[in-house]
Amino acid sequence: MTYIENIYACLAAPLLIAIICLKGKPRTSLMFILGGMTACLLSSYISSFFAVMTGADALGASLEISPVVEELMKIAPIIFWLMVYEPHKMEVSIEIVITAVGFATFENVCYLTSNGAASLRHTIIRGFGTGAMHIVCGLIIAFGLLYLWDRLYLRVTGTLGLVAAAITYHAVYNILVSQTGAAFVIGCLIPMISVVLMLLLIRTRIERYHF
């Protein structure tokens, strides 16, 4: 059994102290790392709840329920921020990725606590596979919003659509890594390939915004 609340308390404490001590942008970024970790903790509870409700087994929950819950929870801190403040679109895009970093980090720590860190190969696959996948999902929403920010109707419906894109991407990844052989290898490589393709596709835009 993994006591994820205990792990969360241990990881969140230094972040919380740093948030109190710092000011300005570093504080905002640390808050979103903590937000991502909190989203991950809550996702595991909500996914378990829906799995019990629908009678899904562990595999069914991982393929069909977790991607939806995790991506919705990951965007929740950003939605709250958007509703309370009026941040600039670049700030929002960056904090979306930072939230994803917090989420992926906490998930990886929980994974390592349950499965051990003895095998370097497994930890690297985990880091550049699932860890990177969460960052790609954040990047999908972040880069998409850069195009859809200017008008309110585009921003609202566009965010919904981009979260849907992240959900389906996450679900496809989960299906592939649940297999063995070639499908598993393709699944593990997809996040890194996606990062490279995204960087190539939007290089000029990144340079302009110093993303």
Binding site: F50, T54, A56, G60, A61, L63, E64, I65, P67, V68, L148, Y153, L154, T157, G158, L160, G161, A164, A165, I167, T168, A171
Partner: peptide, 21 residues
Amino acid sequence: TPSYFYVSEIGWYSSYLFLDL
């Protein structure tokens, strides 16, 4: 086909959303 949740449907119907936009 998926039996617990509407993941494919989320993809398809969100694509309609972008077509509408």
